[in-house]
Computed example of a mutant assay.
Amino acid sequence: MRSVELFVGAGGLGLGVSQAGFQPAAVMDWDKWACDTIRENQKLGIDLVSEWPLHEVDVREFNFEDITGDVDLVTGGPPCQPFSLGGRHKAHLDSRDMFPQAIRAVRNLKPRAFVFENVKGLTRTTFANYLEYIRLQLRHPEMVEKKDEPWLDHLARLEDYETRGRYRGLEYRVALRVLNSANYGVPQKRERVFIVGFRSDTAIEWHFPEASHSQEALLWDKWRSGEYWDVQRVRKKDRPVDEKQMQRASRLEARPSQAAWQTVREAISDLPDPEKEPRKSAGIRDHKFQAGARTYPGHTGSPLDEPAKTLKAGVHGVPGGENMLRRPDGSVRYFTVRESARLQTFPDDMIFHGSWSETMRQLGNAVPVKLGRVVAESVRDKLAVIKPRRAKGT
């Protein structure tokens, strides 16, 4: 099956889609640093990205008609600054909003399905009308806005068309949900909104993948069975005390059937501490100690025995209190690039181009590879049982 990846960045979603078995017909991003990351990994022959047809281009200038043949899936994470908690919240007024280009790609390529993701902030009440506007445009991508038409007027026309119930041309069935990465085996509590659509002529019934991991299972393994501490070889005297977690665990009647949330310790325990063991760390690519970590209210780092807090890109480099590890003794340090890549479930052989702050920006903007793969696999499994057909009008 063939895919097109928009706004690839460091490749989190794109890698997940490739791991799910899709073959990219085009992969694109305008950011030089992100494209250099992909190119360096291609030179190294890193699996999956080595054959990516990469385009360093502003998607607004890309001609989708240059892509020949049928496309099964369009994916991407349109730049999220207009909706991010760390951004300026201008949404449709923000020139960085690339959802119009994602919709243009769907309109031109007519894929059998699409998967777009963005920050959870897109679902805030402030953006409710605009989120519905995005959904309806993806439902009816050929119903384009008129010249100089205000977006609210275009929304009203889309609503009229939607409620009329008699559609012509290209149409998609669209589902939307916020997914917590930790619930799918990612060692990070990272929430992203996914928008998934199937072309209406496929007649596919689909729902988001069920969670495979749970916090309750981790609570049980820590505070009821003690299995977590035993497997991690943490002595009783070194185990942190968390009264709230212990109380929650005591109320569980049985261990949940899901796997336990994955923790920071599980993700990085085989890596030497770059602050305490600099010589051992020196031989590991992208695993260098970065000084300057400090805590302040609301920014206290990620506990070692929990999934990490959401890694952030920051507006001007890495925020002072973010992207830190908090040890059981309360001391903190920044995660290295390699550790951050682990928390985002990137392959260990993948390297990242640029300074520490630049690479952390790429990682902070990425979709966890494992989460991208889980969603892409669920879409692939549905598409695999439906014989491809050309969309109407092609």
Rank of each mutant, 00 (worst) to 15 (best):
E56P: 05
G76T: 07
V234L: 12
F7C: 04
V27R: 13
P274S: 09
D349V: 00
H55G: 01
P53R: 06
L93D: 15
D97E: 09
G87H: 12
R389K: 08
P278D: 04
K120P: 03
R112T: 04
L54N: 07
E266H: 03
D160P: 07
V115W: 04
K222M: 05
V369F: 00
D273Y: 09
D148P: 00
V49S: 14
P388C: 05
G76K: 06
P303S: 11
V115C: 14
A254Q: 15
D273N: 14
E191I: 03
D97L: 03
D305R: 11
E358G: 05
F99D: 02
Y161E: 15
R96M: 10
D153A: 05
N183Y: 02
D238W: 00
G317Y: 11
R88G: 09
D286V: 07
V315E: 15
R390W: 01
D153Y: 00
G226L: 09
D47H: 11
D305G: 08
R124K: 08
K276Q: 11
D381Q: 14
G298V: 06
K90A: 10
R104Q: 05
F99P: 03
L152R: 15
G226I: 09
S340K: 03
T336W: 03
E306G: 03
K244Y: 04
Y334D: 03
R235K: 10
K110Y: 01
T359A: 06
L73F: 08
Q42I: 06
L15E: 04
G69M: 12
E243W: 02
R190S: 11
E266I: 08
R173P: 06
Q344Y: 00
F64L: 07
A113T: 13
D348P: 09
T126G: 08
R239W: 01
R380A: 14
K382Y: 01
L218D: 13
V27I: 14
K146Q: 13
V315L: 15
V367H: 05
G87T: 10
R96L: 09
E61R: 05
Q137Y: 00
A249Y: 09
S302D: 13
F22P: 06
V57C: 13
A20Q: 12
L48H: 15
H55D: 02
K370W: 00
D160T: 15
A182F: 01
G301C: 05
Q188V: 02
D286G: 07
G298T: 11
K309Q: 10
S331Q: 07
N41P: 12
A293V: 15
V57A: 06
E205I: 15
P303F: 02
N323W: 01
P82D: 02
N183L: 02
M246I: 09
S212V: 07
A293K: 14
E339Q: 02
K288D: 12
E266Y: 00
D47I: 10
G45F: 09
L15M: 08
H207D: 15
E322S: 06
M98T: 02
L122H: 05
H213T: 03
I46T: 15
A20E: 12
L325A: 14
I46H: 14
L109G: 04
A156F: 09
D242R: 12
E216W: 05
I134N: 03
S257H: 06
D70R: 12
V337G: 07
K280C: 07
G320C: 08
R168E: 13
K370M: 04
